[in-house]
Simulated assay, not measured.
Amino acid sequence: MLFENVAFRYRRRGPWVLRGVDLALEPGRVIEVTGSNGAGKSTFLRLVAGLRRPGRGTVSGRPRRVGYAPERFPVDQPFTVRSYLTHMASIRGVRADAVGGWAERLGFARLLDVRLPELSKGSAQKVGLAQALLDDPGLLVLDEPFAGLDAATRETLPGLVSDLAARGAIVVISDHQRCIEPLPGVGRVRVADGTVTVLEEGAAMPEQAVLEVVVAEDELDTVEAKLRADGYRVRRPAR
């Protein structure tokens, strides 16, 4: 899949969010998209998935079957989990029994008859992942898929991603939770300064340092979420 001199902006006379993007995404690879909050990662992921069209340049070689899971799954829909996923399976020519299989693998089988607006953020995230994975996509694009997931699903998803890539798919993923770091052979690109740069495999990472931040206890979750959104690793000391 090839990006050639791709540029994008949301309005005709608005500022360019991305410009001059030249990039090859190879089958059988997991590519992590890094960059600070607001740099344009989600915009780039939508361009990869084909949900946005470049203002300039071309994107070619996109696989026919594309799975995309946004950072926030849109739950404001008048369906149960089962009816939504069954509908998506029908659209994509997938057997309806695939729904139950993915519900079991991602740990939400007990929620199949729950209405989408009643789901927690983590459960909604699982439904978004299931719809993206339903038809064995040749291109899988995941925008912060680990946010809000329970520990068991966080452990399961990297293996699913790795298996899909091993079958020849292109997987492009942003992951502030650092859950795919242990996977071997992960490629990385960085979105910054309005463009996308390939990080060379084995390139030295910037020197790391630890900064201790003291906050009120009721602000812990908010501050942690903001730091993770900006691309920082966060760990809480054991009590």
Rank of each mutant, 00 (worst) to 15 (best):
125 Q>N: 04
125 Q>H: 11
125 Q>P: 05
126 K>S: 05
127 V>S: 01
129 L>Q: 10
130 A>Q: 09
130 A>R: 08
130 A>M: 03
133 L>P: 06
133 L>D: 05
134 L>T: 01
137 P>M: 04
138 G>C: 06
138 G>I: 08
140 L>G: 06
142 L>Y: 04
142 L>F: 09
142 L>P: 08
142 L>H: 08
144 E>Y: 10
146 F>H: 03
147 A>R: 12
147 A>T: 15
147 A>E: 14
149 L>T: 04
150 D>G: 02
151 A>C: 02
151 A>I: 13
151 A>T: 13
151 A>G: 01
153 T>K: 11
154 R>D: 04
154 R>C: 15
154 R>F: 05
156 T>K: 12
159 G>N: 11
159 G>P: 05
160 L>W: 11
160 L>A: 11
161 V>P: 07
162 S>V: 01
162 S>F: 14
163 D>P: 04
164 L>W: 12
164 L>V: 06
164 L>D: 13
165 A>M: 07
166 A>V: 06
166 A>S: 15
167 R>Q: 13
168 G>K: 13
170 I>N: 07
171 V>W: 12
171 V>F: 13
173 I>D: 11
177 Q>W: 11
177 Q>N: 12
178 R>W: 02
178 R>T: 06
178 R>E: 14
178 R>L: 08
179 C>G: 03
179 C>M: 15
179 C>R: 15
180 I>L: 04
180 I>K: 03
182 P>R: 01
182 P>F: 00
182 P>G: 00
183 L>E: 05
183 L>A: 06
184 P>T: 07
186 V>I: 04
